[in-house]
């Protein structure tokens, strides 16, 4: 029955209960209450609801809310501070990560470390050259013919099978043995492969002795074309080949460049720590400000 009443009817009933209608409007309501049962029922329901609400007990304030001089002071409002610190923290965190991973990401290893290692290697080569020592580091060749599997090796020092990266055997050619006792050097079967010999030019940085030259030169010249063909295939290298323009030359270096590399490394680490610290500190302050 109450569905027949319109919104305006409900507003009129509500206002009538609160004596908020004019005399004319109140008279109209009285007439409808006498003539329309549905209107009377709606009126009773709203009156009951109103009576229930007015029956709610009045609560006393649990304490006095009087103000003290400290409470009335307006707080220093810095609404920009928390968001600003939050963004600073995020930016510093990103910068820290970028500083930390960029050398690995772009160059495969920290540039400064790489440079330092290279400097050290070249210094050793130069030192060996100066003293006339014929001992050179063993050159390890990746032998793609024997393929994958690798592991183990022969008892012979001249042929070694090495594992690593799931790879196949490699051959190691100790240069000193080939120079001092060419007859005793067991030419490995693996050495017959073109790839095993094409690494010889990498030794060009070390000036060979006359005997060594006589033995090594034919191999170098004989396989020169093969080396050139495979020059672009760096995947077969372990120790790597120097760039063509540097082959056969002795690279000069000095302690200054090494120390510069170390300084660069130290500076980068310092920056990582500084940006990381700022990110952490600003993040903590922003968190505290947000919780307030």
């Amino acid at each position: 029955m109450s569905k027949t009443l319109t919104d305006k009817d409900w507003i009129m009933i509500s206002a009538y209960l609160d004596n908020a209608l004019s005399h004319t409007e109140a008279e109209k309501i009285k007439i409808r209450l006498e003539q329309e049962p549905s209107f009377k029922k709606g009126f009773d329901e709203i009156a009951y609801t109103r009576r229930m609400l007015r029956s709610l007990p009045q609560k006393r304030a649990p304490r006095n809310f009087t103000l003290s001089p400290t409470k009335t002071k307006a707080p220093i409002r810095t609404p920009w501070l928390q968001p600003a610190l939050k963004y600073v923290s995020i930016a510093m965190a990103v910068m820290t990560v970028v500083l930390f991973v960029s050398p690995y990401f772009f160059f495969g290893m920290p540039a400064a470390v790489s440079q330092a290692n290279e400097t050290g290697t070249l210094s050793m080569e130069k030192s060996s050259d100066d003293t006339g020592n014929l001992e050179s580091p063993a050159i390890i060749y990746w032998n793609p013919i024997l393929g994958m599997g690798g592991g183990g090796g022969t008892p012979d020092d001249s042929v070694t099978f090495a594992g690593g990266r799931g790879g196949g055997p490699v051959s190691t050619i100790p240069i000193t043995e080939s120079v001092d006792a060419p007859g005793e050097t067991e030419t490995p079967a693996l050495a017959a492969t073109p790839l095993a010999e094409e690494e010889v030019p990498s030794l060009a940085a070390v000036p060979p002795t006359a005997e060594a030259s006589s033995l090594a030169t034919p191999q170098v010249t004989g396989e020169a074309s093969t080396q050139e063909d495979n020059a672009g295939d760096l995947s077969t290298l372990i120790l790597g080949l120097p760039e063509p323009e540097y082959r056969g030359t002795v690279m000069e270096t000095d302690q200054a460049s090494k120390s510069t590399a170390q300084e660069t490394l130290s500076l980068r680490i310092l920056l990582v720590f500084i940006t990381g610290g700022i990110a952490l500190l600003s993040g903590i302050i922003a968190f505290i400000l947000r919780k307030r």
């Binding site: 409900w10 507003i11 609160d18």
Partner: peptide, 16 residues
């Protein structure tokens, strides 16, 4: 205010 009050009382009636 009148409108909100009437509608609030109706909702309260239904709820009660």
């Amino acid at each position: 205010v009148k409108s909100r009050l009437a509608r609030a009382r109706l909702k309260l009636r239904d709820c009660l």
